[in-house]
Simulated scan of single mutants.
Amino acid sequence: MKPVLPLLLFILIPVSGCIERFYPDIKDYENMLVVEGSITQEHKPYQFYLSHSFPFDDYRAEKESGAIVEIEDNDGNKFPCHEKKKGLYESSPDEFTGRAGKSYRLHITTRDGLHYASDWVTMRSTPEIDSVFYEYREGDLRADYTRLQGIQIYVNTHDPSNKTFYYRWRYTETWEFHVPYTSLVKPNADVCWRTDSSRNIYIASTIGLSSNLLQRQPVVFIDNSSNRLAIAYSILIRQYSLNDQGYQFYKTLVENNQATGTLFDTPPSQAAGNIYCTTDNRIPVFGFFDASEVKTYRLSVKRENLPGSFYTTNGYDFCRLVEIPEQDKEQLNSYYRQGYQYYLRYFNSQLDKWMVILVSEANCIDCTIDGTNVKPSFWPY
């Protein structure tokens, strides 16, 4: 048995060494223009975000301001996009709306005189969404050996014309929430709604399937770590069609984002976009300009429709009330310095003192800090 020990040491030492963290000294990076935006058939402003890539150890993307952004159609018409805030450019729906079957390309001229243009893209038709539904389930096992609960949103869709093989989804979600304490000075501040949009990439392909049909396509998992499912929740799914180049672009982004950052990962690859610098083709640019019809489907769910064992936070577990005699200025000031807010004042006849009640955060009594108290027009409940 003596020869076994050296062999084990030889195996274990390299393996344990491979899992040590490695912090590379990255001094140079490629500063490139980053372009985000697309057009649809919807009669609304189309938005384009212009920014720059940033170093590995920085998280602030520099916005590209003062650029000239235009959409050109295959009839030679150009439609300007106006800068609404730094780095954000919008078209005017009164001047331009996309149409399926027509071709478009994007033009950008930066303030330093560089011109960028996209490939011509033809706006594709998009099949209708057959249905959207949810199923209650538990999430994956986490590091603390617990599992999040929630609902998995699924999409069913197909293309009877057999022309669409690549799909992309985005969503806008809205949920109702209630604050734990009612404001005594601001009316209608205890029930609100909040809206957010998808940030991840959701794509799928029917290539290789026996039919051009997607059934039970998972889109997003809504878990109980927030108050989204505490009262009522509504999600608007937006479905787009992609061409092969667009699908490969987003697929590469998904694969790069899923990498865990270990030495065993496949090295990240450059997502090949369709926007180029025409002033100097050696200057890199990152982005993909796309044109697609969009089809939508709304799904809503109330907390009472979920299993009785389902638990979700109300989002205000941090809220606290403290009661302090009004004359105790030192203690009052101490809480004020901690961020507590005035809630109410009353006379305690048993103590024969005026008392002040403070609340730990202003948004514990005012829901309009985190949302709006105007019920959305589509709200079903």
Rank of each mutant, 00 (worst) to 15 (best):
R216L: 00
L88V: 11
F286T: 00
N188G: 05
F249G: 06
V179P: 02
H115W: 07
L214H: 03
S292D: 07
P267T: 08
W193E: 10
N31V: 05
D280I: 04
Y59P: 01
T252D: 11
T126A: 09
P187N: 10
P6F: 00
S292Y: 05
S92A: 10
V155C: 04
N227P: 07
F22W: 13
S360Q: 05
T97Q: 13
K86P: 00
P80V: 07
G287I: 01
T164S: 01
F318L: 08
S118K: 10
S125N: 12
N348W: 03
C18Y: 15
T195C: 06
W175A: 05
V179A: 03
T164W: 01
F347H: 12
Y335S: 04
Q331F: 00
A117Y: 08
N274V: 14
L8P: 03
Y167L: 02
Y346I: 02
E128T: 10
I129P: 07
Y49V: 13
L106M: 04
Q215P: 02
K27I: 08
P267D: 07
V35P: 01
V4A: 09
V359Q: 02
W354T: 12
R320M: 12
Q248E: 15
Y181I: 09
L229E: 05
S91G: 04
Q258S: 13
A143Y: 08
L50Q: 06
D73H: 11
W379S: 02
E72T: 14
G113R: 09
Q338C: 00
T157P: 03
Y171T: 06
V254H: 06
K86Y: 01
N363R: 10
D112I: 06
D196F: 14
Y116C: 10
Q152Y: 02
L358P: 00
Y104W: 11
D190R: 13
E62R: 12
L242W: 08
K375T: 14
T174D: 04
Y171R: 09
D57R: 12
L9I: 09
T157D: 07
I324P: 01
R298F: 15
R228W: 09
D280C: 06
L50R: 06
F378S: 12
A61G: 04
F264W: 15
S183P: 04
I39H: 04
T122R: 14
I151S: 03
V4T: 11
P80M: 10
D352K: 11
L7S: 06
K295N: 14
I108K: 08
Q239T: 03
F165Y: 10
S300V: 08
A61N: 08
D352E: 07
D57P: 01
K329G: 02
D366G: 00
